[in-house]
Write a protein that binds this DNA or RNA. Structure first.
Lengths: 148, 148
DNA sequence: AATAATCCCGAGTATTTTGGTCTGAATTAT
DNA sequence: ATAATTCAGACCAAAATACTCGGGATTATT
């Protein structure tokens, strides 16, 4: 019942970009440093996010990544689906393309997993990156200057 | 975000035993056949369930397994925890022994995963094997016996 | 024009996990 | 004695995981 690091790191990266939304492109290197993620690995993750249309890239010096949409328009579920595929505790209740199952109609364990899936989806799709940024502001200890 | 087959098969096996609760011990072979599970693999799964105190075994001919408690006293969450370990989408929000995290207090992604974890736990711990048996009765197509 | 900072692509890889199978021993009803 | 079981543990192939790395393409800056 574990998320892979792709989903884990992917969300951290997206959260980082959300916190910088509106400014210049953010290079992966700085994302990796702030979020404490392996830089080279993050490149792969960014590629997935870009192909999913969640971020845009700017190549060359002073380049980097920016969110493709406003933080309020990107849900945690979007990020996780991009990184991990359809949400499904077991294949036979996958959101999309549920695997065939001999006796799906009468399989009770299946209905249990469907309930788990729905409850996960409900949480993931109810939280936007903007929500996360807002919560972050509340939690962050007060300081004189914004940390860099 | 997937369950391994251990959890998946484990729940199927427990459900099967719940449906036979009160009768003689059920040999794994018949569980494997009814639930369409690999028999040898099921042996391993049964060993875990036994060590977790969820089933009791009877050795020898006419032996097999029986639930260690009434179906109403065993929650899906008990089975999944036995088979998959503590429920945790990411380690740092594990139910038990949460992994240390540098900035746990201010990590927002962490709080997202905590919410996911709680929602999963809520579902898993609200469904007992008895509930599953009851639902199964409702779903099962009518046969020669009158409905209950 | 040169340089450096970036993204981009794909290969390589070590380790772990997964999902089993199989052998053989111990136990017990028949 | 036999057959049906659980039980313990070794063994294994394939896939997934979590990366690293090399080198090319692009672009701002100098």
């Amino acid at each position: 019942m574990r998320l892979s690091t792709k989903g884990h790191y992917g969300l951290k990266a997206m959260f980082d970009l959300a916190q910088h939304y509106g400014s210049e492109p953010i290079p992966l290197k700085s994302v990796a440093e702030r979020q404490n993620l392996p830089e080279y690995y993050l490149e792969q993750i960014a590629a997935v996010l870009r192909k999913a249309g969640l971020v845009k890239s700017v190549r060359g010096a002073q380049g980097g990544y920016i969110l493709a949409r406003a933080p309020g328009d990107i849900k945690v579920g979007d990020v996780i689906r991009a990184m991990e595929g359809p949400i499904a505790p077991v294949e036979c209740v996958s959101e999309f393309e549920p695997a065939e199952c001999d006796n799906a109609d009468y399989c009770i364990t299946r209905s249990v997993w469907a309930r788990v899936r729905d409850s996960i989806i409900q949480v993931l799709d109810s939280i936007s990156l903007e929500d996360m940024c807002r919560d972050s502001e509340k939690l962050r200890p007060h300081r004189d200057k914004p940390e860099v």
